[in-house]
């Protein structure tokens, strides 16, 4: 049986692992290769590297990090952050990434998803979506025109780009469906509202996306305790759950978490 995946995420800045809260306040959390090795020993199912290096000249550092990781760790590795075009994707895949995640560039040029998946296969193209709840729903209801009023229980989420800073006006569910149609092999869904809060994943958002598409969805943002993983993998239908700080600071080990989920009857490799 295909198992649900537990995925530690490493935010990498200038070649070091860092972790912030709500996309801000960065703390140093170690060397990416060493951290990856520890996760491999704990039998994490995959790793995600998110490159948040700001300056263009330091972007090459991530290729070296990926190269060194792929030499030492034999498990699936997804790399994202600052991927703009096919040549960025090719460089990352050649360095040893198995999948590349695209976010801002895909929103600006949706056809990049199609070109990338035609060229390298859907299985290695992940579309990352950072979504935020739209608070003033009535205003949107008016804009969406008569006949289709948005009721209060039909929540909507907007896609943000540039590390969660820039609103796009795009509806997260529509965007997820479009990404699938264009050839995305997986969706990495982050709730901006829940990220770093440790009060659990955004179940409504995750559920809405997993029921809109037919490709795997990785839930991200908000994990605080073991139960949160259980709920997002069951009630919200996520195929994988991602967390960063929880694992980094060893508040919870991957091994302990997987043992717990298995005991609760989830298909887990351990």
């Amino acid at each position: 049986m295909l198992t649900k995946r537990i995925i530690p995420c490493l935010d990498v800045k200038d070649g070091r692992v860092v972790k912030g809260v709500k996309f801000l306040e960065l703390k140093d959390a170690g060397d990416p290769v060493r951290v990856s090795k520890r996760y491999e020993e704990e039998e994490a199912d995959e790793l995600v590297f998110l490159d948040i290096t700001a300056s263009a000249e330091n972007r090459k550092i991530i290729l070296d990090v990926v190269r060194r990781t792929a030499e030492n760790v034999f498990m699936p590795l997804t790399v994202g952050g600052g991927v703009r075009d096919l040549s960025d994707i090719r460089s990352l895949l050649n360095a040893g990434a198995d999948k590349v995640s695209i976010n801002t560039a895909a929103v600006k040029d949706p056809n990049l998803i199609k070109r990338a998946s035609d060229k390298y296969g859907s299985q290695c193209i992940v579309v990352a979506i950072d979504a935020k709840l739209i608070r003033n729903q009535p205003a949107l209801a008016k804009r969406s025109g008569p006949g289709k009023p948005v009721t209060s229980n039909q929540k909507r989420w907007e896609v943000f780009i540039n590390g969660g800073r820039t609103p796009t006006g795009l509806d997260a569910l529509k965007w997820a469906r479009q990404a699938e149609k264009l050839g995305a092999g997986e969706i990495l869904l982050t709730s901006i509202d829940y990220d770093g809060t440790k009060c659990g994943y955004d179940l409504e958002l995750t559920k809405a996306v997993t029921s809109s598409v037919n490709i795997p969805v990785i839930a991200s943002g908000g994990a605080g305790k073991k139960e949160d993983f259980y709920t997002v993998l069951t009630a919200a239908g996520a195929d994988a759950a991602l967390a960063a700080s929880l694992f980094h600071y060893r508040e919870l080990t991957v091994k302990e978490l997987k043992g717990y989920l298995k005991k609760r009857g989830i298909a887990i490799r351990c």
Partner: peptide
């Protein structure tokens, strides 16, 4: 089958 999530992505026995 189109009824499944495709690609199959992850660990299986």
């Amino acid at each position: 089958s189109r009824k499944l999530k495709v690609p199959q992505m992850g660990w299986n026995q």
